Amino acid sequence: MVGANLKSETLKLMDKRSGIEAEMNAIIEQLSQPGGPGLSGNLVDSEGFPRADIDIPYVLAQRHRLAELKNDHGEITEKINVNIQLLHSAKLTSTPKDSGVEMNQNASDSSAGASGALQNIVSRDSRGANDVDLISGMPFAIVDEIADASPAAEGGLQLGDQIVKFGNVKAGDNLLQQLASEAQVNQGLPIPVTVMRQGALFNLSVTPRTWQGRGLLGCHFRIM
């Protein structure tokens, strides 16, 4: 019973986290529209006066809300990770050896209209959909800027995508340097990228290359 309650609680937390991610993505997309202030752009013009083309109080409120959501996301993710560890510990002591889980990567998900491979965790026994294993990737960066017709856009990356894995980069120190190095080393070669989008994991392939815009990817990552 304790395990069932813990699993139910964790699923609710994951749903709540998905809602937070959706709201974060909406704010990021709104602030990052062409001509917009972005997530950290100046709110004054070249002469030091408040910009007349944007609603400054609204932008400040949205940036503040985004910071709050980021904190809430971190707290919920921490709770989810603790619960997952407890569930795995219980499974190791009580689950028969032949009733584990395996990870399947579907080539497409027509019901969701997803482009790319949606990563699903499927149970090998006869349990229902609510008993899927609660394994989730930990995003470490978010796409907060992306140029049209860029290698990143052509590879399927979208504004607000949260990077779970970029080639060999998963997490750790000096992430921006790691990401830049990974792109440079693999110039002209496809890099497998796993992103979280609206609470779902997608597998993409992005090829760094020179193009008419800046950089090898044409996007900007912000470490979370």
Rank of each mutant, 00 (worst) to 15 (best):
M1R: 05
A4Q: 07
T10S: 10
K12I: 09
M14C: 01
M14A: 07
M14G: 00
S18W: 01
G19E: 10
G19Y: 01
E21C: 02
Q30W: 03
Q30L: 10
L31N: 00
L31F: 00
L31H: 00
Q33P: 00
G36R: 02
L39F: 02
L39G: 05
L43P: 04
E47I: 00
R51P: 03
R51F: 09
I54H: 06
D55A: 06
Y58F: 10
Y58E: 10
V59M: 06
Q62W: 05
Q62S: 11
R63Q: 09
R65Q: 15
D72W: 03
H73N: 08
E75H: 12
E75S: 14
T77K: 14
I80N: 08
N83F: 07
I84S: 13
Q85I: 12
Q85H: 10
L86C: 02
L87T: 10
L87C: 02
S89Q: 13
A90L: 14
P96N: 03
V101T: 15
M103S: 05
M103P: 00
A112N: 11
A112H: 08
A114M: 11
S115Y: 10
S115R: 15
G116F: 08
A117N: 13
Q119P: 00
N120D: 11
I121Q: 10
V122G: 08
R127I: 00
N130C: 00
N130D: 13
S136M: 14
M138R: 15
F140Y: 10
I146W: 00
A147C: 00
D148P: 04
S150H: 04
A153E: 14
G155K: 05
G156S: 03
Q158W: 05
D161F: 09
Q162V: 07
K165Y: 02
N168I: 05
K170H: 11
A171N: 15
D173E: 15
D173W: 07
A180E: 08
Q184I: 06
N186L: 04
P190E: 03
P190K: 02
T194R: 13
V195I: 15
M196E: 15
A200Y: 14
N203P: 05
V206M: 13
R209V: 05
R209H: 12
Q212A: 13
G213V: 07
G213N: 03
G213E: 03
R214F: 07
L216N: 03
F221G: 07
M224Y: 09
M224S: 07
